[in-house]
Write a protein that binds this DNA or RNA. Structure first.
Lengths: 146, 146
DNA sequence: GTAAGTGCAAACGGTTTGCAGCCTC
DNA sequence: GAGGCTGCAAACCGTTTGCACTTAC
């Protein structure tokens, strides 16, 4: 990893065991370009617009594989869609604007600490940090006057 | 407890404007009976088993309406299903066993405090507490020896 | 050369909806 | 009696899968 890994611009990334195909590279590039959380379909569409067409199922598969390998981030929107975004930092949580998808990263230390407390208090194992907050970012808020 | 409201055993509850139909009463009763988070389909099945049959879409509609009115609680499971449970206390969060659905209520004060901090720090409005933790409860954990 | 990856189309599973008949208020 | 409510079946929508073909290694 420390030898030939270029920065993650989306093209010459180490795919963690996956074959480097045109489609996967394109997906990674698209995700790198969009910097809000986007659905598989949105990403698929973005690919088509940039001329890098890939089949919808391929996009679904690629996004899943890439997120499994930690190359991209995943969350679930309140209405059940899976959203993806370029991975900024491994373990962290998000505050996502429900309208534009804009993201604020929450300091992970605090969340983890907090989950750890509950793990100890309750005996629950393998607690998944489903701590994703959806709100309306300042830019998307209706003006007070209206 | 105050005037004429009986305990929420599921039968003579004020439906907050909704007509009191056999089906809605049955749904409420089922939810009162099950005390873990259950899916609409599970609740529909539970109704059938108790002899209170109601159409699946009616159950979906009833659960939605009841949760909108705050009579029952809702969360989303990690795989996108909507889960319902009798409402214990208005604003609170949960730690749910991914296997048996068993729930630990998280002290809401702490979560709210925490969300409030982020609201102030980020300017995001209307932050929804999607703080639902899914883990494996002690009873469902594989024994260490195995 | 061969196993992994792709793309289409069809299946899937949870949920929603249109509509004719029913029942609560 | 009128409008809300119900139930069926069909539509929906995001996602997954089977399978023949292609491609990276």
């Amino acid at each position: 990893m420390s030898s030939n890994s270029a920065p993650r611009t989306g093209d010459d990334v180490d795919l963690a065991g996956l074959r480097s195909t045109r489609q996967r590279r394109a997906v990674l590039r698209a995700v790198a370009r969009i910097d809000v959380f986007a659905s598989s379909q949105t990403i698929h569409e973005s690919l088509r617009r940039s001329g890098d067409h890939a089949g919808l199922s391929t996009v679904y598969r690629a996004l899943q594989e890439l997120s499994e390998r930690g190359l991209i981030d995943t969350i679930r929107s309140p209405d059940g869609e899976t959203l993806y975004r370029r991975c900024v930092d491994s373990r962290h949580h998000h505050l996502v604007c429900r309208r534009c998808g804009q993201v604020v990263e929450l300091p992970s230390g605090q969340v983890d600490l907090w989950i750890e407390q509950w793990r100890q208090a309750t005996g629950y194992a393998d607690i998944q940090p489903v701590v994703e907050l959806f709100g309306t970012c300042p830019a998307c808020q209706p003006t007070e006057g209206a």
